[in-house]
């Protein structure tokens, strides 16, 4: 035991650090529930901005929803948008600062319900921005109501007996939808509940910022995530349920790369 302790002392030294919290996250503790995917997505986006060295050229837009206070955690210039309007706000900023990096951070209530118009038209205009779309199939902040993305049969506080698609419509696949628009350059669906998915998401997030530098058009990154509080599950249960149900309906993977739709084989 003593030998093992000695070893830890040798390992836990500054020069041996292989992973630490990025300095682009503030010291404020995330306001998110235990196990919520927001924290991972926040961290990865900030890691990319740090690695690309673009903090002084990046402006983020926080939405209405659980991540309304994203600016408390991200140590970058940010503007908070009205519900669903982030792509319009991003358009205004980007048109004034065409050389800067601009991204929106939006949930599924924000982007896929009240903000569908702003989303589709920003995508259609090919605004040179990145949209991060966190889809957990529910309205988290207001207490777990049905979202447009809520799965068929899925329970929420406004579909207590499960979503009846005959009455309430079908879950909407925004990512496939915007991929059909000529203005989108890179469209992908990711997840962040396992280390492998986080690595893939980070690659996609990096591409979203690199595309802006090359003025390629809009990058749209959906992250299928959990809402264990809204789904009334433990974090681990929620991730398993998500993998079996959400990812079955919202399959991860690239949908459009370099402006070309990926053909399904």
């Amino acid at each position: 035991m003593e030998k093992e302790n000695l070893r830890l002392d040798e390992i836990i030294r500054e020069e041996n650090i292989v992973f630490h919290k990025t300095s682009l996250l503030t010291d404020k503790v995330f306001s998110y529930c235990p196990g919520c995917g927001h924290g991972v997505v926040h961290r990865v986006i900030m890691e990319i901005i740090e690695e690309l060295g673009i903090q002084s050229d990046t402006i983020g837009i926080s939405p209405v929803g659980c991540s309304v206070f994203a600016y408390d955690f991200m140590n970058i210039d940010m503007q908070q948008a009205a519900h669903g309007r982030a792509p319009a706000v991003a358009t205004g900023i980007k048109r004034c600062w065409p050389e800067k990096y601009v991204f929106t951070y939006q949930g599924d209530g924000d982007l896929a319900a009240i903000g569908t118009s702003e989303t589709i038209h920003a995508c259609n205009r090919g605004e040179n921005i990145a949209i991060f779309f966190i889809n957990n199939g529910i309205y988290g902040m207001t207490g777990g109501q049905m979202a447009p993305t809520t799965l068929s049969g899925m329970k929420s506080s406004t579909t207590p007996y499960g979503r009846d698609t005959m009455l309430m419509g079908n879950p909407i696949k925004m990512t496939e939808l915007v991929a059909t628009l000529p203005g989108t350059y890179f469209v992908t669906r990711q997840a962040v509940h396992t280390a492998l998915y986080v690595r893939k998401f980070k690659k996609a997030a990096r591409m979203a910022f690199e595309n802006q530098k090359l003025k390629k058009g809009l990058s749209f990154i959906e992250v299928v995530s959990n809402c264990n509080s809204g789904w009334k599950m433990s974090p681990l249960q929620a991730n398993r349920w998500m993998e079996e149900n959400m990812l079955a309906f919202y399959p991860p993977g690239d949908i459009k790369i370099n402006g070309e739709l990926i053909k399904k084989t």
């Binding site: 837009i61 503007q79 319009a88 358009t91 205004g92 048109r95 118009s117 702003e118």
Partner: peptide
Amino acid sequence: IAAINMVYGAAG
């Protein structure tokens, strides 16, 4: 709505 929110972003 989009126009005024573009103004909001640009004003920032």
